[in-house]
């Protein structure tokens, strides 16, 4: 697979998780998850007001990690690839 195809694959997987933890657990299935309680939190409520945000942070850092690996694999020979031409 090319760099761009792998990039799109990473985006697809990570955005699916993004959708699941916020729109899925926080909204669509939130009331179902509310049946489960840990401590004082109902699980659906926790995802809506806390959990989804923690997952967002984790998702971005996984993305950074994977993309840095991908960059290295395909573009390691160019060090200052990004120097601006303007």
């Amino acid at each position: 697979m090319t760099y761009w195809q792998l990039n799109l694959l990473i985006l697809f997987i990570l955005l699916s998780i993004w959708f699941l933890v916020s729109f899925g657990f926080g909204i669509i299935w939130s009331e179902n998850l509310d049946q489960i309680k840990f401590g004082g939190f109902k699980l659906g409520f926790w995802f809506a007001q806390q959990g989804s945000i923690y997952f967002f942070v984790i998702i971005i850092f996984i993305y950074i990690f994977l993309m840095n690996k991908l960059d290295k694999k395909f573009y390691s020979d160019h060090q200052e690839k990004d120097k601006d031409k303007d």
């Binding site: 809506a48 989804s52 967002f56």
Partner: peptide, 9 residues
């Protein structure tokens, strides 16, 4: 909460 953080993803 979700709207103003999820946008960063």
């Amino acid at each position: 909460l979700m709207g103003w953080t999820g946008g960063y993803v």
